[in-house]
Design a binder for these strands. Sequence first.
DNA 1: ATAAAAAACTAATAAGTGTTAGTTTTGATA
DNA 2: TATCAAAACTAACACTTATTAGTTTTTTAT
Lengths: 196, 196
Amino acid sequence: MAKIIATKNSSKKEVIAKKAAALFRNKSFAATSMRELAENIGVEASSLYNHIGSKNELLQTICFKVANDFTIHLNEVEKNTNSSIIKLEELIRFHINMMLSHSDEVFVANHEWKQLSEPFLSNFMNQRKSYENRWVEIIKDGIRKKELKNLNPHITVLTILSAVRSVEFWQRHKKSIESNDLESNIIDHLLNGLIK
Amino acid sequence: MAKIIATKNSSKKEVIAKKAAALFRNKSFAATSMRELAENIGVEASSLYNHIGSKNELLQTICFKVANDFTIHLNEVEKNTNSSIIKLEELIRFHINMMLSHSDEVFVANHEWKQLSEPFLSNFMNQRKSYENRWVEIIKDGIRKKELKNLNPHITVLTILSAVRSVEFWQRHKKSIESNDLESNIIDHLLNGLIK
DNA sequence: ATAAAAAACTAATAAGTGTTAGTTTTGATA
DNA sequence: TATCAAAACTAACACTTATTAGTTTTTTAT
């Protein structure tokens, strides 16, 4: 009889969620069946329900874990009294590192959140909007202190948050690009621009 | 009896593809049923098959139309003898305008291409890789001519192609951001950076 | 070794899937 | 007005879906 193997660091539920994140990323949430997930883990589909509530709950677990990680880090950054530039650099660095260390989960949170059911969908969107607004405040502060150029803060935030997702593409190019280069290049590009 | 209404500019097949793009964008390809698509158009699901071959074919139509539009524009840019900076600016501008004028189709091509079936999936990935490589050459040329900083050209391309996708996010913020600002801000940010 | 709890299994449910076959209606042309 | 093709319809197919019920096996604790 097959078994779900919990490790010291991950409960059985976490093992399932981890595998689910990988499948949701590669095939999309809707196109991944519970039978397929079960097969990847090595048990029957119905056995999963001893450990999880539903397929939807798996998506919720993944999305809110990621959202909370980002929120917690932002709390830390806001506490410090660094310049806006340092704060932005820390935030960008955290995004890049999260995408490298939890790539499946972050991908799913970025691309499959729309499949959340209510009220989780609304919660998620609100949490995201609040997160963006707090970035905007950091940028506004930097403009006020003449540290940053007077670009539109909302657009700037959206541009940065989009740009860091290049790490997703990078996963396809791993051979030709070093991971250290990736981080420094993106930060340099976004902060200092491309033109000599 | 309900009908699919073709206009002067769009055949019935194009009307279906347009509506499909909107649904595939908002619900994902896998989560959109042919019955749902049909209902949105105002006919029965089986009636669609008088005009299209399959659900998969719809996705192919959408994805390759977008891919070809980008390839054709890149051909034009390469023909001209402008500086690399002007070329990049033209390319970025085109991306932004495509996302504004064909937002559903571009979104689907960006996010749902994984659901393509073979051999279309491989074709699409190859076309995309070739497109990226031609961007890389433009950047390399700019570095050679001392127009651009010596950043990693691959990462630079990925960063730009990611960053322009901020237009997707912008659709959620329409009220607070002008579309003109959007274009100039993104270009300024990506070319000249954020720091004063 | 025994009893209880946890977690696996098989089997089934009800609903939904893309698509096809066959039929009827529609709209244009002769 | 009669004819014919285009395009709509209804009904059905064969399959897949998430999830539950009921049962058996495995693990844990006494």
